[in-house]
Design a protein around this nucleic acid. Structure first.
Lengths: 241, 241
DNA sequence: ATATTCAAGCTTGCATGGAAGATGGCGCGC
DNA sequence: GCGCGCCATCTTCCATGCAAGCTTGAATAT
């Protein structure tokens, strides 16, 4: 509702903006830098100069600067007054903060979806189950990346069906911040079947039009995932991700 | 954690930047425009040109343009590609979205505060009760603006004691968006004592270290407030705030 | 009278230049 | 050798110029 999300492709190449659409240079710079941060082309802690990025993207400093402002508002970088653009690193404490936000948002979203009128509710439950099926398949096949992608799709669908643009935006920003951490910790995950079972419980509550159960299921799922991951991060001594 | 919030004064004059601090022009423009939107100097639906605002603030178009980007990211304005800066209006549906977010965030925050170690928990409960006392005083004295301010302080303190910078930022952005609506609907509110009693219940749960009760108390409080306000908005036919 | 076309004036998008500030290295004093 | 101050350089910040696009309104043809 608030604003259109023009670029949804997760893997845009860094230097090439193949989109022949009517996009502004600022949008191009924003998308390119965001993608570069996501796939760690820009490593956390790296300090880039706007001039250098502008040169690499084949544009002037102005659009890069304005894109950096947007990225800073998204919490991905920090513009240091006269030092350059710093790619932010995530500390375990940041992951704690992030999990609190998604615990709150996923819970409310599940509650809302469970309170939807029948046709939409069932459609949502069906979509969620489809994603969970994909997770189960990936788990059986030992395809961890596919599992992670299906897991992300499940949670994205949950938020999307809550039909709340502000919640979507918030969750997307949070996901951008934690994307690298999720990629890194994917192979540390143990309780994959627990996640699948919990997803089933959420979808079941939604199908049964039980908002209280849906809220609790979504919350407990995120809380358990957090309690599984945070100790791992600390024990591995990962100061920044 | 993410970033320092330099200007916290809520009523900065539009043209005068009295702060002799080391602020950039972009920050000045951001603060001035944000304040102007808050106190409705810039009415919703008003379409300003960057040139005009720059002239009024005594600076060039560049800092105004970059501040507009930040305000757009905050959901306060929309930069129309070659038409100017549009001050966004809030529809009742936006208020529904906003309430869903605060229901989720306040609930989680209350739960977190109730799980804090004893000294901080009691300090938080005491601070919350102090704000509720101020609400009761204002209610007794018939001072509606004071009541609204104390109510805002209560919820701000609740979030603050949860010690989560991302939650604070999200709630602050949401509050900025809904500030005008809150001001307008202040004199429509009826159940002022209900709010006070519910605040007491939240503080009591926190003092008793009962996260489950605190979560439910905070959620029910926000849900009731929403159910009180949204019908009023619709019945008054307020299409945009 | 009405519809259509076209041009002028407004707007921002983007590039670039000058200025101020921070930083790191180099030279000087000890 | 070691510490300190200064300058060169690199960085962003902000102003401004130019160009492109959209809107509006008038003038003309029907």
């Amino acid at each position: 509702m608030t604003r259109a999300q023009p670029s949804k492709d997760p893997d845009a190449r860094t230097g090439a903006n193949a989109g022949e659409k009517r996009t502004s240079l600022v949008d191009d710079a924003y998308a390119a830098m965001r993608a570069a941060i996501r796939n760690a082309s820009f490593a956390p802690g790296y300090q880039a100069s706007e001039q250098e990025i502008a040169l690499r993207l084949g544009m002037s400093r102005t659009p890069v600067h304005e894109a950096a402002i947007r990225l800073q508002e998204d919490g991905l970088v920090r513009v240091l007054p006269r030092k350059g653009i710093l790619i932010l690193a995530l500390a375990p404490d940041d992951m704690r903060e992030i999990y609190d936000v998604v615990i709150a948002m996923d819970g409310r979203a599940a509650e809302l979806v469970a309170a939807l009128p029948e046709p939409e509710r069932l459609a949502a439950a069906q979509a969620l189950d489809a994603h969970t099926d994909a997770m189960a398949d990936a788990h059986a096949g030992g395809d961890l990346p596919a599992w992670g992608q299906a897991d992300g799709a499940f949670h994205a669908a949950l938020i999307e069906h809550a039909r709340n643009g502000r919640m979507s935006r918030i969750v997307q920003a949070i996901n951008d911040q934690s994307h690298r951490a999720r990629m890194l910790t994917l192979n540390l995950r143990r309780a994959l079947d627990a996640s699948i079972a919990e997803h089933r419980r959420i979808a079941r509550a939604i199908r049964a039009a039980d908002p209280v159960e849906a809220l609790d299921a979504a919350r407990q799922h995120r809380i358990r995932a957090r309690d599984e991951l945070l100790p791992l991060l600390n024990s591995y001594g990962l100061k920044h991700l």
